[in-house]
Amino acid sequence: MKRQVPLALCFLFGIVMILTQFSPHSYSQGVYREVINWNLIINPFALILAVATLIQTHMTRIQRRTEHWQYSLVVFLGMAVMVLIGIPLGPQNSYVEWLYNNLQVPMDATMFSLLAFFIASAAYRAFRARTFEATLLLITALIVMMGNVPVGDLIWNSVLSWLPMEDGASKVRQWILDIPNLASRRGIILGVSLGVISQSIRIILGIERSYLGGGD
């Protein structure tokens, strides 16, 4: 009951999804549509897992008075304000939109914009041509960076004007992306896809069971 039924359900839904892909019969397509509908309905409930984990984490921080525990109250404050206004009024409500546009969006966008500073600092400190491979990576990155911005071609056309190629920075960048980058990316895609397929087969056949978690 605790393990066998979930394994059987997993097998059933997996096999149905595979078989219905190859059968255009109306019954088969009816089953396919129904399976998708079931999954559409079940999926939103997964949010409960995420929210429960977040609440538990911050409740524990408050109960144990760990360092900076007061900020966990801020998490609950933000969540409560949004939920108490948003659930009864809906996300289209002007108050919810105001909170979203003036608080959530600026903070979210700024949080990730910090990475521009850190990538510059990391490039200065760690981007070294120590080995042949590292040099290759570094040179490619520099060419792509130059080719990505208009000033790259401007510099190429003024400094390397004796070369028989105009706008070379963007052209060389394009060649790198089109040929060697494509080859290595395709290798990664093939490798990852083979992994996805083999893992999917193991899951459907019940060989891979880690998603069931520990216990009975």
Binding site: A123, R128, A129, M145, N148, V149, G152
Partner: peptide, 24 residues
């Protein structure tokens, strides 16, 4: 945005070059 990005790219390229010169 891309025109503004030009200058940041030049700065980062310069920093990488400087870092490598110092390293070598």
């Amino acid at each position: 945005g891309l025109n503004t990005a030009s200058f940041v790219h030049l700065l980062i390229i310069g920093l990488v070059a400087l870092g490598n010169i110092a390293f070598f």
